[in-house]
Nucleic acid binder design. Structure first.
Lengths: 217, 217
DNA sequence: ATATTTTTTTAGATCAGTCTAAACTTTATT
DNA sequence: AATAAAGTTTAGACTGATCTAAAAAAATAT
């Protein structure tokens, strides 16, 4: 059985690898886990020994099939619990992450099946992220440019196209990060800027920025 | 913040001390925790240093006010989760103990308040055990062992002592669950088994079973 | 292509929780 | 009261997850 920590590493690596495909560097993991590179190296050895990742010294790690499957069941649990917290216990969607981080480690496949049924087999969590099914299948959501959306649109941010660090920094500052709910209030015709609401705050994004933000459709 | 293990020790000691009052011996704790006396001694030192119990070498430990309060919040969490599992997720009452053992360690006072509200502030868990309120107050119901009752007794089942799953499964099968009316028809002198009526059905329970069933008096 | 910087790994230490084996206290027995 | 038995504590070791400091490898810059 996996420890708390092992599960957290597997989940973090999966996310950093964008679904487990691309290789991830030691320092990236250390940053994501708020720990030191040395600790990561140790854990990498353990996880690779258990066949969740493949590891070659001085190169990033890559997830195996086994590892991806494991990550998906953890993600499934996390997102089902978040849905429960928001829909049944009436938490607001920004309060649930920390609690779900704990709940996702509860061991009981039957519990998760029953929770899934209780919630009526939801397809996405409160942040709009898809919930993998019991076999690890993820329903990939169609998404489009924020720039293409019109007044009245509501959805959530899926990803950011450009990896330019100043854009990311800016989006992070204004709270426009993946997972966040967004509503389109209106668009300026003359410069194609877009007015939106994120976290109850009105924001105006330039065309250039809006073209780089992917949202659910 | 308390570790998983510390919480489990506190809960076990509280139960062994019958509500925290009488002193508990090292070996009793070791048995209850499925560990060795030496490990218990170490943990006792730590918990006493943190003021949850008072400790004098070679004598049993006693819970402090602080320790009792802590134990009661853990028990509250455990019993609320059991209620949730049975009432909302439709687990049967003999399946929930192990899962609640995990859930009781989730840290979030707000979560517990919301769960309590969601369940409509239940007074007892599915086994009939009282649920402490947010201040640690327990509503104690007068009750006695079924085994101690004599011919002609009528009352109802309040709770089941042992949380052993095979006992619970058995009681569930014969319909001896909390809330059910029970009547004592007679007792066999030679093996101290007891004959009762539940749901118009005559049943014979062994001494061991009857000792674990609590009834109103 | 050599030197410098960055990244990663190794070595060695620490802490929590556990263990076994030995030492020590208390309780029971004769 | 002396001895045996039972229960408890100490000493020392191990594992898992972490750390710091130093060594090694890879990437970058001159």
């Amino acid at each position: 059985m996996l420890s708390f920590t092992e599960e957290n590493y597997i989940k973090a690596i999966y996310h950093l690898a964008d679904g487990g495909s691309k290789p991830v560097l030691t320092n990236e993991i250390a940053d994501a886990m708020n720990t030191k590179a040395a600790s990561v190296t140790d854990m990498i050895k353990k996880l690779s020994h258990k066949n969740f990742i493949s590891y070659e010294k001085y190169y990033g790690v890559k997830m195996t099939k086994h590892g991806k499957a494991e990550a998906l069941t953890i993600i499934r649990k996390h997102r089902l619990w978040e849905t429960f917290l928001v829909e049944k216990l009436h938490f607001s969607w920004d309060e649930v992450h920390e609690i779900a981080e704990q709940l996702e480690h509860i061991q009981s496949p039957l519990l998760i099946e029953k929770l899934d049924a209780f919630l009526n087999y939801p397809k996405a969590d409160p942040h709009g992220e898809p919930i993998p099914d019991r076999n690890g299948k993820v329903q990939v959501k169609a998404h489009g440019c924020l720039h293409e959306q019109i007044q009245g649109y509501t959805g959530s941010i899926v990803a950011v196209k450009d990896s330019d660090s100043s854009l990311l920094k800016y989006l992070n500052k204004i709270g426009a990060v993946p997972g966040k709910k967004v509503e389109v209030i209106g668009k300026e015709a003359y410069d194609e800027s877009i007015e939106i609401i994120i976290d109850d705050k009105n924001l105006t994004l330039s065309k250039t920025v809006a073209q780089n933000v992917l949202v659910t459709v």
